[in-house]
Design a protein around this nucleic acid. Structure first.
Lengths: 229, 229
DNA sequence: ACTGCTCGTCAAGGAGTCGTTAAGGCTTTT
DNA sequence: AAAAGCCTTAACGACTCCTTGACGAGCAGT
């Protein structure tokens, strides 16, 4: 991240001025707007990395501005407000705001929250979970809940599928016995590790070429199991 | 997102209880920890979607817990604290926290901030690859529980992994023998320092280029061990 | 140089965990 | 009502890994 752009939306000039000074001193590029419509326009034009938004705007309600932004952008929004009421905070946060700071605020705190917001959004991520997982000889469709081995469809029972699904959704990762038992059988079965042995054996018999020397459904003794592609 | 998991870290039972009740009533899965070390372990095991963390913990400073989590995870962290000082907030947020709520807090507000945090992370969230600790020749994936040396996967046993994990989570810092024994083997093994010699030797044989002249798994005579990057 | 301590290394035994199979009994389907 | 399918449970052999003891090296103090 080179230089983050902050869009400041407030109708009180002295607040805008204070923020502009402090933010540019910290190396942020600062864009300002005095009302809601101008804010939405400015956001579309400048694509800010974070928005600081006062709720008390002359033309639009603050939550409308949030909704207007959220319609097309996931930019972090930090709400400023004179009102510290809980209902107000809840509404703003549920409308899509990321943080809520009550006026009067400490500049240090606002800057820290700003840093936190920018840091978060700069961690980009693509969706890692694919609908269908392939391993060369086995294919698992997580949505249709169908499993094929060498092209032929394999029938799995509910429990078998529960185990396999959890392992495949975490393929490559180790899944602890406790987690498997908790998620598939329920919290009261956390110690019934015997079930896992039975069901892993069944899954291996159905999916592995050599069930006695599994390539996908791997046991990590004492810890859990993992699905390898 | 089907059912979000929340890790609640607080040493005050009534707060943990209140949160557990309110959160599970809203359909969250709730996992709790009453101190920092338990929190770090629980986070590794259950991979929560969001962490609610009290700063006043008995064993570790809250910011250390944040740092310990941020070493390998990008899970949203909401900090709870009795102190409303600005410096405290700034420190926590800069350490990697995502939000800061002052006690006493309104449950509505906390829930709203929680929703905001989960919403955010489910958008930018899991990119499939985990945070990995790298040293040039060794790479350690703390989530998948996988270790590679020069690209080749190395198999570790449960106990070997327990020792390595604790050292890597505190990389750069000295970990005392007692702490290692307590966390990996249990409180009654605090004086069985022999185990450490055996297991450190095994780990070095598996991970170090020259096991007799280790570069990562360093012995601090009379005190403990340290993992150097 | 000798003694006492801590650390590193190796190997063997034994405890605990895992894989496998099959049968009983419950639920659901036909 | 019968049949099929599935979960649970038990038993046993096989295997992995934890534990344990013995021995040598390095180091500090006497």
């Amino acid at each position: 991240m080179t230089e983050a752009t902050v869009l400041v939306v407030d109708d009180e000039p002295q607040i805008v001025r204070a923020l502009r000074i402090n933010l540019s001193a910290r190396g942020y590029r600062v864009v300002t707007a005095h009302d809601g419509t101008a804010a939405l326009r400015a956001a579309a034009e400048t694509k800010p990395d974070v928005v600081v938004l006062d709720l008390g705007l002359p033309d639009l309600d603050g939550n409308e501005v949030i909704a207007g932004l959220r319609g097309w952008s996931t930019v972090p929004i930090i709400v400023l407000s004179a009102r510290s009421d809980s209902p107000d905070k809840v509404r703003a946060l549920d409308a899509g705001a990321d943080d809520y700071v009550t006026k009067p605020f400490g500049m240090d705190e606002l800057l820290a929250r700003l840093r936190a917001a920018v840091r978060r959004s700069s961690v980009s991520g693509s969706d890692g979970t694919d609908a269908v997982v392939e391993t060369g000889d086995v294919s698992i469709d997580l949505v249709a809940k169908k499993v094929r081995r060498d092209g032929e469809e394999v029938h799995l029972t509910k429990t078998e599928w529960g185990v396999l699904e959890l392992l495949v959704r975490n393929h490559g990762r180790l899944v602890s016995q406790k987690q498997l038992l908790r998620e598939v059988w329920g919290p009261t079965y956390e110690n019934e590790s015997h079930y896992l042995r039975v069901y892993l054996a069944q899954l291996r018999r159905k999916l592995e070429r050599e069930p006695s020397r599994p390539r996908h459904l791997i046991t990590e003794p004492g810890m859990g199991y993992r699905f390898e592609l």
